[in-house]
Design a protein around this nucleic acid. Structure first.
Length: 391
RNA sequence: GGGGGAGUGCCCGAGUGGUUAAAGGGGACUGGCUGUAAACCAGUUGGCUCUGCCUACAGAGGUUCGAAUCCUCUCUCCCCCA
C-alpha cells in the first residue's frame, strides 16, 4: 500500500511496536485504522482534529478509517488523564452528541473511506461474555496505569467500572479488526492494552500511534471543552478567528505544526503569523474566502473599533419600567447578555459598559428608552447588542 | 462488619459560637497598556425590585440573644482492621 512511514508518522509521539507499522504498510491490503471518540460533549474541537487529521492522511494513502463513536463507553467514562470520575451524560445527550460527532468528523474525513460504528453494537454484551473479557487481564494490570496510581496516592476514589474502560476499548479493536489504532498521548495505555485484548481473542495485534495533545487557547492546559479553552470546529468564523488570535505566541509553533502540518510558525512578526493561522484554519472549516472575511471582520472590531456586522438585536419593549418609559439598565444588560443583574451593576460601576462606544455611567440606573433606541450596547470588548425601540 | 478522618464560594484552601457574603491563592471577568499575545498595574468575582433585602459553608432537625463553628440524624468520600 502507498503511504510512506516517514510521512504517516510525522508528528507522532509513539509508534509501537517499533517497526510494526512499516511492515503493515508493506502489505497489499488497505489497513483498518481505528479511532474511538466518546460523545461526552457536544463539540469536536481543534484538539480532536490533530488525530482526525492524521486519519485523513491514512485515508489519502488509501487506507480505511474506522471511526468508533463510543456511545457505550461514554457511559463508563475514560479515566485517562482524569483525577476524578467523570459525570455520566444521559443517554439522550450521548445520542445527540453521537449524531453531531459524525457530521463534524466529516469536515476532515472522507465519508467514502470511513466506516462509522457505534460500540453499543457489540459492548452491550451478556454477562458471561463480559466475564470472559475480564478474565483476559488482572487487576494489577488495570491498576498500573498512571492516572490510577496518582489517584490512589491522592486517596481519590476509583470507581470499579472505570477499571473496565481499557478492556472495553480493547474489545472495540477486536470487534472491528483494527490494524492500527490512533489516539492522543494520554491514550497510550488504552491503545497498548487493546493489543493484549486482541491477542487474548486470537486476533492479530494492532499497532498504535499516539499524537501530541494540543494545548488550549490559554496556552497552558490541554484543549478541552470543560476548561473553556477550546476552539470548536463548528464555531462561527469570526469567533474561531478571534479565539485563535488570543492564543499566546508560544503556542503558535504547536498550532502550525499539529494543525497545519508546517514545521513551525512562519518567520516575521508574531501578529502576522497568528493572522495566517487564523485565516487558514477558518478556511479549513468554513470554506475558501471565509478566512479573509473573518480577518476583515476582526479588524473592523478590534483595530478600527467599530461594531461587527451581525450582532443580536434587542427589543427595548421587554425592559420598559412602569409606564414612565424608562429602562432599568441592569435588567437590560442581564437580558441582553445573559449575565446576572448584579454582575451588570458591577460592570457599570467598573466602566465596562458602553453605549455607542462611550462608557456608560453607573449613576442613573434608569435611562429613557428614547436615549437607547437605535444605539449599540456593548459589554467589554466583544459583546454587542443593537437596541431597538419597543414595538 | 469494627475503628478513625473528612465534606466551606468556579477550584484549592483558611476559619472551631458574635464587625463572616466568609482570609489567602488560582481561575475568570472589567479597565489601563497592547498585537483580543505575554508581562505589568488597578478593580470586580452569590442573588435581587440594591443606601436595603434574601440565600449561602454536604442535607434535615435542634441548642443559643446569635452557628460554617456546639448537639442529633441522614447522605457522600477517604484511611486502617476484618
Amino acid at each position: 500500500m502507498p503511504g510512506s512511514t516517514p510521512e504517516l508518522t510525522r508528528n507522532a509521539v509513539d509508534v509501537l511496536p517499533e517497526g510494526r507499522l512499516a511492515e503493515q504498510l508493506q502489505g497489499e491490503r488497505p489497513l483498518r485504522v481505528k479511532l474511538g471518540i466518546d460523545p461526552t460533549t457536544a463539540d469536536i474541537h481543534l484538539g480532536h482534529t490533530v488525530v482526525l487529521g492524521k486519519l485523513a492522511e491514512f485515508q489519502a494513502a488509501g487506507h480505511t478509517v474506522v471511526l468508533i463513536v463510543g456511545d457505550f463507553t461514554a457511559r463508563v467514562g475514560d479515566p485517562s488523564g482524569r483525577s476524578a470520575s467523570r459525570p455520566v451524560p444521559t443517554p439522550e445527550e450521548i445520542e445527540a452528541n453521537a449524531t453531531t460527532y459524525q457530521e463534524q468528523a466529516f469536515k476532515l474525513l472522507d465519508p467514502a473511506r470511513t466506516e462509522v460504528r457505534r460500540n453499543g453494537e457489540w459492548l452491550d454484551m451478556r454477562l458471561d461474555e463480559l466475564l470472559r473479557l475480564m478474565g483476559t487481564t488482572t487487576v494489577a494490570r488495570l491498576l498500573e496505569r498512571d492516572d490510577f496510581q496518582k489517584r490512589m496516592a491522592a486517596n481519590a476514589p476509583i470507581a470499579a467500572h472505570e477499571l473496565l474502560y481499557p478492556l472495553l476499548q480493547g474489545y472495540d479493536s477486536v470487534a472491528v479488526e483494527a490494524d492500527v489504532e490512533l489516539g492522543g498521548t494520554d491514550q497510550k495505555f488504552n491503545l497498548l492494552f487493546g493489543r493484549d485484548v486482541q491477542s487474548a481473542y486470537g486476533r492479530p495485534q494492532q499497532s498504535i500511534m499516539t499524537l501530541p495533545i494540543l494545548v488550549g487557547t490559554d496556552g497552558v492546559r490541554k484543549m478541552s471543552k470543560s476548561l473553556g479553552n477550546y476552539v470548536g470546529v463548528t464555531d462561527p468564523p469570526a469567533e474561531m478567528f478571534g479565539k485563535l488570535m488570543s492564543i499566546p505566541d508560544e503556542a503558535m509553533d504547536e498550532y502550525f505544526r499539529l494543525l497545519l502540518g508546517e514545521d513551525g510558525r512562519p518567520p516575521g512578526p508574531p501578529n502576522q503569523a497568528k493572522r495566517e493561522l487564523g485565516r487558514r484554519l477558518v478556511e479549513r472549516f468554513h470554506g475558501a474566502g471565509a478566512g479573509a472575511a473573518a480577518e476583515a471582520a476582526f479588524d473592523r472590531v478590534f483595530v478600527e473599533r467599530s461594531v461587527p456586522d451581525d450582532i443580536p438585536a434587542v427589543d427595548l419593549g421587554g425592559y420598559l419600567g412602569d409606564g414612565d418609559g424608562a429602562v432599568h439598565l441592569p435588567r437590560l444588560l442581564a437580558g441582553a447578555f445573559g449575565i446576572s443583574s448584579s454582575e451588570a451593576r458591577r460592570l457599570l460601576a467598573g466602566g465596562g459598559v458602553k453605549l455607542d462606544g462611550e462608557p456608560l455611567a453607573a449613576d442613573p440606573l434608569d435611562l429613557p428608552a428614547a436615549a437607547l433606541a437605535g444605539r449599540v450596547l456593548q459589554v467589554g470588548k466583544r459583546r454587542f447588542a443593537r437596541l431597538h425601540a419597543a414595538g
